[in-house]
Nucleic acid binder design. Structure first.
Lengths: 329, 329
DNA sequence: CTGGATTTTGGTATCGGTAACAATACTATT
DNA sequence: AATAGTATTGTTACCGATACCAAAATCCAG
């Protein structure tokens, strides 16, 4: 930058202004500076800029696991909005471990990110304290937590799970099994389970621990769950797979065993991946606002960061989901 | 940091060393400093550190599209290795546009990333020039380009496509259709197409432009391609879907129409997603070293950055793929 | 044409660290 | 015990930008 200033015969301050606040510099100066920039091939140093101005243009994002396709839409939403405002995304994965998350938060804070997006809503007390102390805005967006750190943009896993279970009940299913991913350190899973139970109560159905299962991700796990449930509790007439692509594994298993869907057993899922519309029978599921979550998250963060919109602190955006009835129920 | 130094009664230099080069500081000092750090709740400022030392611990990654599950494994490999060395990942998407990519490279360079990972291997001349000028190490990992910018960690799309086409030929298929994603600004698609053609020549089969199609991503596109190919050229006996989950859409379409797979038509795919093993018939495909690519990319980058391993400049790591024969062919 | 208001430009300190070298304390050797 | 050698700590300058305030240039009404 020194070189640019020298070449253009102006001070570094003028160069800085020409680049960042073009309005505050005369037409002539601006052109002179820009020409010098081009001639020298000058590339501003963002680190120096951020350090000096005490503002940064990076946002930290922590997801439980990067190789999980359900986040990709959200990340895309985030990324697109942030990019249009010149912000950069730093991404890391916590492996569903709150301590790991705390560590990553520390790292991001030391990188002076100007905002944080957390997919998990379970945090260590120290993590919460560090964030509070740093004063930067945070958005949680995997769930609607009982005690938000700050802002929230999400749908309610509880409501969604409740809605689907109620839907199954209204369709006349009476022995509704429930499969989810492991709920340890996964409040999304926990809330889905609770929504399921609440709906059962509402429907006047008795909970049966034999048909409530937790498993790992993947098609094989879904198939395994399907087989186990039907064999241990033959009177089961529906299976609600509240996670990942479990339902597809379950469906394949039914096809293999010759169990009619929904004749023998109905199937419902949680996330509307493209696949569910194309399999046969097509699968009843919930359409979740994955992309919107990312987009809104970015917008609300940027409002806080750029416009200092303090009135948004602590705001909770509960985005709606949609239940899609298809052939499998 | 000033505060920490004061509290511990030492100079800032000693604090800096205690934190970053513990070996160069006496046991006693180290403890004194660490205690002060804890008491004050001091968080180092990475921006300042990087600026001062002219080293950073961030790596820039540019993928064509974030919401594409084929990258997630690679990103995971990258992320895990980088994290273990304290490096951070900045991710952005170029939307398959080289100009956009150039823009992002510029941004990353101004953030002083210490390395770049590019999934695309098609770049603007200016982008190449900027990278060269910056002197930072780069890894391309979506393909093996004819003229690498610097280092490459990938499998060969050409070889993989060639191998699968040859495989189909050896199995006796004579009218092999080929479907890929649009190849404009997508050298991976282009190379796959060339590999296909090379194999046809080797097999002594005539190319037929009517059965070489490009389409968009998604199941619907795969289904559409399937229907179109069979109807326009009934003698087709195999379809090689060289991209995304096209093959699944194609398979569903066959099931819907009652076309036996592989009786009426054989199906082969490019990427071994979990699904292909579980559908019926299971689908012949290529197992690509997605995770390994990320891992190796990270390792080779770190060698260059931390150990200054200049002998690695320009090295090309051609990771092997594996052809998995299943029921569909 | 002049004085004050306004716009444009520049000088200097500073952001929070680290590099490079200087100074001091400690060890080992003869 | 003296000296060279090594380990530890401190001093100072600087990384590359921006904030803050001062100075110069421009504008405009009276």
């Amino acid at each position: 930058m020194r070189d640019v200033a020298a070449r253009a015969g102006v001070s570094t301050m003028t160069v800085s202004r020409a680049l960042n606040e073009p309005g505050k510099v005369s037409e002539e100066m601006r052109e002179r500076v820009l020409r010098a920039v081009r001639e020298i091939g000058y590339l501003p140093n963002h680190l120096a800029g951020s350090l000096s101005s005490n503002r940064s243009t990076t946002i930290g994002l922590i997801v439980p696991s990067i190789d999980n396709s359900i986040y990709t839409q959200t990340v895309k939403g985030l990324s697109e909005v942030l990019k249009s405002s010149g912000f950069q995304l730093m991404i890391a994965e916590s492996g569903y471990d709150p301590n790991e998350e705390e560590e990553l938060i520390t790292v991001f804070l030391s990188h002076r990110v100007s905002g944080l997006v957390l997919h998990s809503t379970e945090h260590t007390p120290q993590a919460a304290e560090k964030i509070r102390k740093s004063g930067i805005p945070v958005v949680e967006n995997g769930n609607i937590p009982r005690e938000p750190l700050d802002m929230v943009v999400s749908f309610s896993n509880y409501d969604a799970s409740y809605a689907m279970t109620m839907h199954l009940g209204r369709l006349g299913y009476r022995k509704i099994a429930f499969a989810s991913l492991y709920s340890v350190h996964n409040d999304r899973s926990q809330d889905r389970l609770q929504g399921y139970h609440a709906a059962l109560r509402q429907l006047g159905l008795d909970p049966d621990p034999r048909i409530v299962l937790e498993t790992e991700r993947g098609l094989a796990a879904g198939a395994e769950v399907m087989a186990r449930v039907v064999q241990s509790v033959p009177e089961v007439d529906a299976l609600f797979c509240a996670g990942d692509v479990l339902v597809v594994g379950a469906l394949f298993e039914c096809q293999k065993r010759g169990w009619a869907v929904p004749g023998r057993i109905a199937l419902a899922s949680f996330d509307d991946v493209d696949l569910l519309r194309h399999v046969s029978p097509s699968v009843t599921t919930l359409r979740l606002p994955r992309y919107d979550i990312g987009e809104r998250t970015a917008r609300i963060l940027l409002s806080r960061i750029m416009d200092g919109a303090e009135h948004l602190r602590g705001s909770v955006v509960d985005l709606k989901f949609e239940l899609i009835q298809r052939e499998s129920t």
